[in-house]
């Protein structure tokens, strides 16, 4: 086996294919990733990542706030019912003493 595949009078590459692959933005992005690793790049440089992180933090804070509120309400309800039960017991005790 020669190891060569001869292509005599080949057709040139299609212009639309060349245009499809031509993308300096991608090369520049890879260059920046290669020369400035993620851990050395301030987060605000990646706008999309930064905004999504802010959004996630905001949602997490809202969920925790809502959870706290619910817990407080539950505690309040429990305390109220205990207080009611106490006062009911007191009244019953007073009645039985009389």
């Amino acid at each position: 086996m020669s190891g060569f595949k001869f292509n005599i009078d080949p057709a040139p590459p299609k212009e639309e294919k060349i245009a499809e692959h031509r993308n300096f933005g991608k090369v520049m992005h890879n260059y920046q990733r290669m020369t400035n690793p993620l851990y050395r790049t301030p987060l605000y440089r990646y706008r999309r990542v930064f905004l999504s992180l802010i959004l996630v933090l905001l949602v997490a804070w809202l969920i925790s706030e809502y959870g706290n509120e619910e817990q407080k309400e539950k505690q309040q309800q429990t305390a109220d019912s205990i207080r009611k039960a106490d006062s009911l017991n007191k009244i019953l005790n007073d009645k039985s003493k009389r």
């Binding site: 086996m1 020669s2 190891g3 060569f4 595949k5 001869f6 292509n7 005599i8 009078d9 080949p10």
Partner: peptide, 12 residues
């Protein structure tokens, strides 16, 4: 894989 070699008939 096999290396692709492009040439014109006139090159030969």
């Amino acid at each position: 894989r096999e290396r692709n070699v492009s040439l014109e008939q006139s090159d030969l």
